Amino acid sequence: DVVLSPNGAFSTLRRGALFIDHTTVSARIARQIAVEGRDKELLCVDAPVTGGQSGAEAGTLAIMCGGSAKAVDAARPILSAYAKRVVHVGKSGAGQTAKMANQMCIAGAIAGLSEAIRFAQIAHLDLDKVFEAISGGAAQSWQMDNRFHTMAKDEFDFGFAVDWMRKDLGLAMDEARNLGASVPVTALVDQFYVDVQAMGYGREDTSALIRRLPRRKGKA
């Protein structure tokens, strides 16, 4: 409705205008917007972002773009003002599909990190030493660098909400069904997030996934 309704954005744009969509929606909607845009001679780019709140504040976001080369080239100078990486993934809808893959990776990483932290706590390890030991090796990730210590301290009042992640994982699983792709880990972690929502933490950061894991042994 915001874009395609009679009073939507497209009704006010001049021919040849550039339309950049940073929302995370289905690839089908992105393709529909692009088709409507072509009819109006608009340059449309589906451009979902990743990098979190900190990336937005620091201007270091990564943006995955779908659309024609002409549209993405027109958008690049604008996007580069607040993104460190701008990648033309493919045709319209490809940016959204790449964002789904991104969210699947994040969900799996947070699930693994949650279990690792709880495991180390139950084993009475010094978490600072654990972080020092493993964060420089193959286990290193953005989630580890930016969420390990806050997860260990049960701090989740920031970042990307669990409710939003569930919406994104739903989009990813819908697209996987359309493509005939198997995503069992994504489906499992999505159900873990259902547990977190049921606990009342849907508005907390996605790293709150660790809340569903007990701190003491014998409680699993």
Rank of each mutant, 00 (worst) to 15 (best):
D154M: 12
A34Y: 02
P214W: 10
Q140S: 15
D163A: 15
G136E: 03
H149T: 11
E155I: 11
G66T: 07
Q140E: 14
A27S: 14
L43S: 11
R31K: 14
E204H: 14
C65W: 03
W164R: 15
L43M: 12
G218C: 05
L188C: 08
K91M: 13
F131W: 10
I210S: 00
K153C: 04
L79C: 02
R14M: 12
T186Q: 07
L171Q: 02
T150I: 10
R211E: 10
G37A: 09
G112C: 09
A83E: 02
A101K: 07
I78V: 12
D163F: 06
W142Y: 13
G112I: 02
F19V: 04
A75H: 02
Q197G: 08
H124M: 13
K129Y: 08
Q103A: 07
S182I: 11
L18D: 02
N146I: 04
I63V: 12
R31L: 04
F160C: 04
K99P: 01
I106M: 07
A111M: 05
Q103T: 06
F156D: 00
Q191I: 03
M165L: 15
K91H: 13
F156V: 04
T24E: 06
T206Y: 13
R215F: 08
A58R: 14
R166K: 15
A62F: 05
M100K: 04
L169A: 05
M173N: 11
A9H: 06
K153N: 13
P48L: 09
Q121C: 05
L43V: 08
C65H: 04
A208M: 06
L113Q: 01
R211D: 05
